[in-house]
Amino acid sequence: MRSLPRIVIEPLVRAALLEDLGRAGDLTTDAIIAEDAHATVALVSREPGVVAGTDCARLAWELVDPRIEVRDLLPDGSRVQPGTVIGAASGPARGLLSGERVALNFLGHLSGVATGTATIADAIAHTRARVADTRKTIPGLRALQKHAVKAGGGSNHRFGLDDAVLIKDNHIAVAGGITAAVGRARANVGHLVKIEVEVDSLEQLAELLPLGVDAVLLDNMGPELLREAVSMVAGRLVTEASGRITPATAIPIAEAGVDLISVGWLTHSARVLDIGLDHTGA
């Protein structure tokens, strides 16, 4: 898959390195490791999963010491098993050790996002539905996390408040109803901006359907109610289901016929993929 531009990831990796190195650098490594020592290390998966964040790992070492050579990195989206070598790095040992934690933090976290996404994508592969992320991302890491979702076989929802209209329950309450909210949105956004509206009942859906929006977010509906909603929509809108979805509950929800299943925990509560750094030689 296509990598994120360096200009997007470098400020994040640089900030992580500055946070870790602090005011005095790596006291442990500089005290123990000779300045002219060289080493070779391998990034090794300890468990099954999907890789993401390899460009962040590479850049972490390159920023610490440009003499470090990172090679044979698996592309993001690769499936790995315990013992799979994800990549290798060699060069000045001090730089390798000082950049290790930041490289592994990015790689483990983003691979965890990709792996969690793949768990649901695989579970619903027999349906038309796709798994999507949300805006429930770790501050500052949204672009990286959404890239990792794509690496895991998922789709990206809007990236922020500025690239689509999503009218939710509180917007509807303050605006005075679905019809009023949609009307104001239509009057105030450009013709290329898509509009999605959240509903939590078939009555709200019936009010929404004549309004000509692009998508409907069917919030916290069970599979049977979702089937009715999909039948009512009859292909006129993109249908999206959300609400505390797990890999197990995703299956009947997808089988109800929705187009998308949005899952917040993919990004806000992703479990890291266990990836280790093994010393393999000088």
Rank of each mutant, 00 (worst) to 15 (best):
A34Y: 04
A34N: 08
D36F: 09
D36Y: 01
H38G: 13
A39G: 04
A39D: 13
T40C: 13
V41Q: 08
A42N: 09
L43D: 04
L43Y: 15
L43H: 15
V44R: 01
V44T: 06
R46I: 12
R46Q: 14
R46D: 07
V50E: 02
A52S: 10
G53P: 02
T54N: 04
T54S: 05
D55C: 12
D55M: 12
C56D: 02
C56I: 06
A57F: 00
R58C: 07
R58A: 03
L59G: 09
L59V: 06
A60R: 01
A60H: 00
W61P: 15
E62P: 13
E62D: 12
D65P: 14
D65M: 13
P66N: 09
R67T: 07
E69P: 06
V70S: 05
V70L: 03
L73K: 00
P75A: 15
D76R: 10
D76N: 15
D76L: 07
G77W: 01
R79Q: 04
T84Q: 06
T84D: 02
V85A: 08
V85P: 02
I86A: 07
A88N: 07
A88Y: 07
A89H: 02
A89T: 14
A89I: 15
S90L: 05
S90N: 10
G91C: 11
R94K: 07
G95P: 05
G95A: 15
L97N: 11
L97C: 05
L97E: 13
G99L: 15
G99P: 00
V102L: 10
A103E: 08
L104R: 01
N105T: 04
F106G: 14
F106Q: 05
H109M: 03
H109S: 03
H109N: 07
L110S: 14
S111W: 00
S111F: 03
S111Q: 03
G112M: 08
V113G: 05
V113D: 09
A114M: 00
T115E: 02
T117Q: 05
A118M: 07
A118Y: 00
T119N: 05
D122E: 07
D122H: 01
A125Q: 00
A125F: 00
H126Q: 06
T127F: 02
T127A: 11
R128M: 08
R128G: 10
A129T: 14
R130H: 12
V131P: 11
V131A: 11
A132T: 13
D133R: 15
T134I: 10
T134H: 01
K136N: 09
K136A: 10
K136P: 08
T137A: 13
T137K: 12
I138N: 11
I138L: 08
I138A: 14
G140V: 11
G140E: 09
L141E: 05
R142H: 08
R142E: 03
A143Y: 03
L144T: 05
L144W: 07
L144Q: 12
L144S: 13
Q145S: 08
Q145E: 15
Q145P: 13
K146W: 05
K146D: 01
H147M: 06
H147D: 12
H147W: 02
A148D: 04
K150D: 06
A151G: 06
A151D: 02
G152R: 00
G154R: 00
G154T: 00
G154P: 03
N156E: 10
N156L: 04
H157P: 08
F159Y: 06
G160C: 09
G160M: 15
